[in-house]
Design a protein around this nucleic acid. Structure first.
Length: 427
RNA sequence: GAGGGUGUAGCUCAAGUGGUCAGAGCGUUGGGCUGUGGCCCCAAAGGCUGUGGGUUCGAGUCCCAUCACCCUCCCCA
């Protein structure tokens, strides 16, 4: 290695094989499962005008205040790398008048990178990836349950271990203020028993204190007012119906009265799915209802509910893939310069059958060729040297059986087709 | 943004209180096997010990800074 070298910026990382392939499988599973629930994929830019996030997420949230990648482009416009996906999806909805141009259901999902300038640690990176869904225009509590069920089914389907579903209702703009006031009063009465962080935030974000993990605060939290007593009738009715629907959908969950959300737009239903083995960042999936957000972004007064999955966190809790699948099934090994042309045509013929194949064009010894074939985990090697060229045949070697035969190209291709495509899909 | 830990070959790790301590295994390449992989044996290549300063006769080892990673707080997916 000579000269200056570079590394990926802090909090970012390269996704390499075979991990990239595991990611692709999980993403493919999301696409098929989400479609079963009527969700369609939407792709939005990874940067937006800064104001969209300030309005959508909340100007006083940590995400907007101190984690957003904000920059001015060469034209002087203020832009921001997206720190989450919901604002962009709703912006697209409003911009393209989905309510007038698209048929119901108004259900969308996205997959892609998000950016937050945070201190990296396990399960938390500056560029991270989310898979999220948004169901718009559906106010029924059954929809909340359906969205939660989708998240749960997905996590289970891809093999996440020990997932716990936590559900809560954080009330609405009618009833939450009274609860926040009650909390504030309670925190103030017990201020000296709280940790410094909580003393600092108890006025500005009284709900957040409920979520404190500090041992010191636990005793105080036990006696804190519970939101149930403050719900307005509609919120209570809604949450009851969500719970009924969750039971009907066979989603095992626990009520966590202290579960809160960090983004301003959430109301009523809030939920989180956590898994073991993630350290402090144990939420794999989080979401909730956000009626009012679409209107705040200039759209119709339609309700919404959705979730986002943290890809890095999800992949961290999936069991290791038992089979390190090889990328190639066949490797062509030309032994002389003269054999390269034959190998090139041969490898293309095999590929056209749908068999992943590669020709090692830097000519070498049989020994080195078979060694690379072995290392690549290939099932067949095709050896083409002077002997083969003389008779117009290929030597087809079955690597695992250690058997080989010298066949005409037609016979060899047919043998590969039979061995490799028997149970393959027809297309 | 705050606190703590770690950085030695591609990978995983060794190197008593600073003095041949820059090594091993795996991997890579070549050979033993003149056209045949895996197992075994042999050999070679590969490191300015993250980077930059400092202390010292002498620093992988001590000090400072910086970068990266890990853990916690914070925040959240």
């Amino acid at each position: 290695m000579t000269g200056k070298t570079y590394q990926a910026p802090r909090g970012t990382s390269d996704l390499l094989p075979p991990d990239s392939e595991r990611w692709a499988r999980v993403e493919a599973a999301a696409r098929t499962l989400f479609r079963l629930y009527g969700f369609r994929e939407i792709r939005t830019p990874i940067f937006e005008v800064r104001e969209l996030f300030e309005r959508g997420i909340g100007e006083t949230t940590d995400i907007v205040e101190k984690q957003m990648y904000v920059f001015q482009d060469r034209g002087g416009d203020w832009l921001a790398l997206r720190p989450e996906g919901t604002a962009s999806v709703l912006r697209a909805f409003v911009e393209h008048r989905f309510d007038q141009t698209m048929p119901p259901p108004y259900r969308y999902f996205y997959i892609g990178p998000m950016f937050r300038h945070e201190r990296p640690q396990r399960g938390r990176y500056r560029q991270f990836h989310q898979i999220g869904v948004e169901a718009l225009g559906e106010s029924a509590p059954e929809v909340d349950a359906e969205v939660i069920a989708l998240g749960w089914e997905f996590l289970r389907h891809v093999g996440a271990q020990n997932v716990q579903v936590e559900v809560n209702s954080i009330g609405c703009s009618t009833c939450r203020p009274a609860y926040q006031a009650a909390l504030r009063a309670y925190w103030q009465a017990h201020a000296e028993e709280l940790c410094p962080d909580c003393r600092r935030r108890m006025d500005r974000n009284p709900l957040r204190v409920l979520d404190c993990k500090n041992e010191v605060c636990q005793a105080v939290l036990q006696g804190a007012p519970v939101i149930d007593a403050y719900w307005c009738d509609p919120c209570r009715t809604h949450f009851d119906a969500v719970r009924t629907a969750l039971a009907a959908l066979d989603v095992p969950y626990v009520r966590n009265a202290r579960l809160v959300r960090g983004l301003d737009y959430y109301m009523r239903t809030a939920f989180e799915m956590t898994a073991e083995g993630l350290g402090a960042q144990n939420a794999v999936l989080g979401g909730g209802r956000y009626d009012g957000l679409l209107r705040a972004l200039g759209g119709p007064d339609w309700p919404g509910v959705g979730f986002a999955i943290g890809m890095e966190r999800l992949m961290a809790v999936l069991p290791e893939a038992a089979d390190p699948t090889s990328a190639l099934a066949v490797m062509f090994l030309p032994l002389t310069e003269a054999a390269r042309g034959v190998a090139l045509q041969g490898v293309q013929t095999v590929r056209r059958l749908g068999i992943p194949a590669w020709a090692r064009m830097d000519v070498g010894s049989v020994k080195s060729g078979l060694r690379s074939a072995h290392r690549a985990g290939v099932r067949f090697a095709v050896i083409i040297g002077d002997d083969e060229l003389r008779v117009g045949r290929w030597t087809l070697r079955d690597m695992s059986a250690s058997r080989q035969a010298t066949l005409s190209p037609e016979e060899a291709v047919e043998a590969l087709r039979r061995a490799l495509l028997l149970d393959a899909p027809s297309i």
